[in-house]
Design a protein around this nucleic acid. Sequence first.
DNA 1: TATGTTCATAAACATTGTGTTGATTATTTC
DNA 2: GAAATAATCAACACAATGTTTATGAACATA
Lengths: 198, 198
Amino acid sequence: MGNRIEKPQEDQRVRLTKTMLKSSFLELLGSKSIQNITVKELCERAGVNRGTFYLHFYDLYDLLEQMENDMLADLQQVLNENPVIRGDVSQEAAATFISSLFRFVEKNRELCAILLGDNGDKKFVNRLIEVGREKSVREYRALFQDASVQQVEIFYAFIASGFLGVIEYGLQHPSLPFEPLVAAAERIVAEGSRYLGK
Amino acid sequence: MGNRIEKPQEDQRVRLTKTMLKSSFLELLGSKSIQNITVKELCERAGVNRGTFYLHFYDLYDLLEQMENDMLADLQQVLNENPVIRGDVSQEAAATFISSLFRFVEKNRELCAILLGDNGDKKFVNRLIEVGREKSVREYRALFQDASVQQVEIFYAFIASGFLGVIEYGLQHPSLPFEPLVAAAERIVAEGSRYLGK
DNA sequence: TATGTTCATAAACATTGTGTTGATTATTTC
DNA sequence: GAAATAATCAACACAATGTTTATGAACATA
């Protein structure tokens, strides 16, 4: 059930190499888009031999994907530990899922800003949406029993993207406090859920 | 005001070359992502000399951007000709903007599916959202006078992304008729707008 | 401490795509 | 038909790619 995956206890040398590459990659992604980054310059910045890069990654996109996977695994954890919606949608009290999600984005702010921004990765965005779909649809169906599967699916397509839109808006405006933004999004979701009936 | 931009009356040869390149590019984008496409293979497929490509475009991303510009100009037209929201939000009658937008997506289905899909262009998505922002915010502010600018901005960030999410959902499920999907999205928006008060 | 394994390095290599150039041919415009 | 413009072809220097080699260092194990 809640099985942690056994990590093969990676060699310290490997961990160092990967860490250097990943953090240098983040730096570069902050200033230019992935298609303008070369393996050569990444390795120079990371102080890693170019050949060593190919020992661990297929190419830059493979590296990016591995970084995305790490994040998605964390997000899956957040999802597993919290219900997406509370029994009573209009309830005001602190949302467990929403605040966990909020902390998750904050924790991965740098990578999130890159992956959701102008030079972002649409595939990653879609994976994000996919991660939450099954559970969300199930919970919304339980709450709005008169709604068809189709309706709930469309509803989810809307609010998942909408939520991400607000998060991106927040990442683009670092001066704004994050939490009220997300709380606002939750209000909109709650009101919008009238679409599902009752 | 409603000035049409004077097109410089392009040489027929130029038009042919660009047309060949664009349609071949679309074909390639249908089967692989842009970073795996080379200028070389594009030109071979299009039957155009590689040197000729560089006569018109800086690189593949420049070509893509020009194609996006063409589409965005059309969209701007749609926006100019229709109000984003109707005076009475809950009204049921045929929405002019919504159906125009719907026709727009249908007309550009192939390119839309690519630009909004897994290998899509996040920059383009953000441009799409940007195109509608100013006008939408203005209209929503007029309708919900008690709402703050901040609130309306957040609301727009949510619904614009949400709407795109539904459109993408529709593009991923070609068997589903398009119009009811978008109508559903409009319902969700209408309900969600209660967030703005009254 | 000795042993066998894994990893990072450096240098070399063939390959491929890039972006540009100059001369030539074809097409359009007037 | 003449002048202007565009496309072609071949050639070019250049840069990054991805792979391979030999070598030494770090690691795990007993």
